[in-house]
Amino acid sequence: MAIKNVFVQGAITPEYIAKSIANHQSKTTIGAHDIFLGQVRADVIDGKTVSAIEYSAYEEMANAKFHEIRESAFEKYDLSCMHIYHSKGIVKTGEICLFVFVSSPHRKEVFNALHHIVEEIKSQVPIFGKELFQDDSYQWKVNT
């Protein structure tokens, strides 16, 4: 299977997410979808408020890691399909930077698979978020 490009420029729009859901209405063996949306938080750090996150990545390796995560999830869980999108570039607070969409005939599979996939993304994929503050300073984010 070819390695897909997971990255989209800027925020992932609610319209895009709605369209993705609509695209699955013809797949009638699916009985359950689950969706994870990562949203940029306006954290306050040392009195300064985050206004956006600028994402960069080691794209070739990141896409390879997404591919590995996808393949291993298909092996572990009974999934009908799976879609992952991650932003690159600037995403403002309140906007969506990660969209994971899994589908299966039954609900248990999607709950478990989604949890597993998101944790793998957060810990394994070489993506780097630069938290931009309102005063033009920044700091590199670290996932906990």
């Binding site: 990562g38 990141a62 991650h86 070489p126 993506i127 780097f128 978020g129 984010k141 996932n143």
Partner: peptide, 10 residues
Amino acid sequence: IALIPPVSGG
């Protein structure tokens, strides 16, 4: 070869 600092995707 690449250096990978703490990741922060998602």
